[in-house]
Design a protein around this nucleic acid. Sequence first.
DNA 1: CGCTATTATGGAAACGCTTCCAAAATGCTG
DNA 2: CAGCATTTTGGAAGCGTTTCCATAATAGCG
Lengths: 358, 358
Amino acid sequence: MMSQTAIDNQGNHPHKATIYDVARKAGVGIGTVSRVLNQSQQVSEATRQKVQTAIQALEYAPDPIARSLNSGRTHTLGVIVPFFTRPFFTAVLEGVQTEIALRGYDLVLYNVIKREQRDTYFSKVPMRRRVDGLIILSLPPDDQEAAIFERMQVPVVLVDCYNPHLTSVVVDNVGGAYAAVSHLLKIGRKRIGFINGIIEGNFRFNQATDRRTGYEAALRDQQIPFDATLVTASAWNRQAGYQAALKLLDQPSVQRPDAIFTACDVQALGVLEAVKKSGLQVPQDVAVMGYDGIELAELLDLSTIQQPLLEMGALGVRLLLQQVESKSLETVQTIQLETKLISRATTKPNQPTVKTVA
Amino acid sequence: MMSQTAIDNQGNHPHKATIYDVARKAGVGIGTVSRVLNQSQQVSEATRQKVQTAIQALEYAPDPIARSLNSGRTHTLGVIVPFFTRPFFTAVLEGVQTEIALRGYDLVLYNVIKREQRDTYFSKVPMRRRVDGLIILSLPPDDQEAAIFERMQVPVVLVDCYNPHLTSVVVDNVGGAYAAVSHLLKIGRKRIGFINGIIEGNFRFNQATDRRTGYEAALRDQQIPFDATLVTASAWNRQAGYQAALKLLDQPSVQRPDAIFTACDVQALGVLEAVKKSGLQVPQDVAVMGYDGIELAELLDLSTIQQPLLEMGALGVRLLLQQVESKSLETVQTIQLETKLISRATTKPNQPTVKTVA
DNA sequence: CGCTATTATGGAAACGCTTCCAAAATGCTG
DNA sequence: CAGCATTTTGGAAGCGTTTCCATAATAGCG
């Protein structure tokens, strides 16, 4: 088996055709074949036809590696993302993936679970010439790291995080939190609990501080005094949210919050459980408001601050390709996107006054 | 800080050192440098030291593209996965990702949403020499496609699907469904509804038929007659599961199922909603059993058939690298993993008889 | 129809490595 | 220390493209 005839085809010729084979078959030079491949305008129609025919006949496809070697371009973008299985990151990653595929690039996924991975990817990826550019999700580089990207000439776009030396797509977290808290006040809640997110694994997430700023600003604008006993923080997951909420709720009813706002939807899921566990009801006793707008929030009828998840990813890619394809890493820009408050069952006003639907 | 010596640095020397630079600096030939890089045993200790020093001094890192060009290896694996944002696929993908990273390979993600993408990836990816091997998730190639992989000499491992010509990791779906239905019968249910999955976008998912086989076998073994009105199918998502369940439940109570088993957990979420919507209770009126064992099932206290999600992915990668690194695509093997029944609140027996916890 | 301006074409050089072969260096033996 | 076996080394060739320059073909014009 695996026999081969004189010329070579038994249908199973594993020998991949090269540009030389095509040139020979078409009776032209390799330069001409290359020009046809690269849509150069400098080829006569007749020649183009001959070459195309030869390409078809040989099932020729140019080797991307050889191409990369002297173009210096890989047609691949890297994406560094923490915990890509978490709904928020998955959603943004989907936006990234879709846009990258749309533009005909390949996507290399670097997942970060531990601090060392973050550091390794930040320092190693730019060295290896594997990707034409890098999307970094929610993991702000420090200035020294940013300097490495610049020195290595690797185009980078940050999504959901910020560094003054790099182009970034951010979301108005202060505004989002402000809107969330304002909404809770508007539906008559007086004691707004807040479960912020904390830095896990020392990744330097900084979205948390913004959300806290928004929380405080909303209270201030309504002349509600800040009460430290209503504020806590937990890891960005359900169990931690659950625990934090139990702690907030475990107080005499006058002290207890009548609403809880969390830094992310996943924490809010834990809050929902905790409220039930405490023998209380959502939203009658405690209104709950999440942040992010993951799909699950809709499923559980959770009010939330919707971030433009897909758009963040897609826009990041567009900005990155702009840099990649124009070789201009000069213009650092920061684009801020807005959030949208989505009011669902967990923040229904207490008195169903106007429930008369005509 | 970041100071460097005379020869060339203004701190920002974007010129990447090549193997020639290293050779010159170390006063040896490029062959020797290459041998040091590749841990060849043929280098004297003294020379190795000189070369290492030069490498450090120049911050030299070999260009992976140039390496690939003549080794023919990219140190990259491709993963073709449908709807990677869906919990089941995300979980398996996580297993894949972790194992790939562990082995020091890069992972290129090909996401499939539409039939054309599937076809494009199946035919184009093997041609472009971009990846050393391919993991295909839940998308069984037909024989012609399998032949292309063979002809192009691309190592492939299928995960959660099957083709006789390719190595694959499958799960005992018949057994899983059998266990699920048996369990529902054991807790006293008589009329087991079944919402199977249907082929979406014509991807040739075939897990559905297996699950149906298991369903029927379990009934047969308990001498329960098969009732076609209890069986239906829907797309693998929540809304479709919801609709399908409403249809099953919209019958006089003697005809109505007292348990519903779904082909995946996400459908089961829809079922939970539908039961509530119908004014019935889980598990008193209708027990619910999902399939997959995604994280969300635990959150909602949904009984399910747990698939070894991470392990499927990781094992797939291990099998693939075995092929890649030994160049032996000869030994096609099929490994079948088992499922585990997880009983939670949605299949609690009706009479809490033995609730006496000692 | 001859001459120049333009367009089309061929193929060497370069991209940065690995591999291989011949040559140099070293070690060993009697 | 001559002679041979072994280890170490240098560097040319090759991987499959693109790019660039020189040359060939064609067109345009008086």
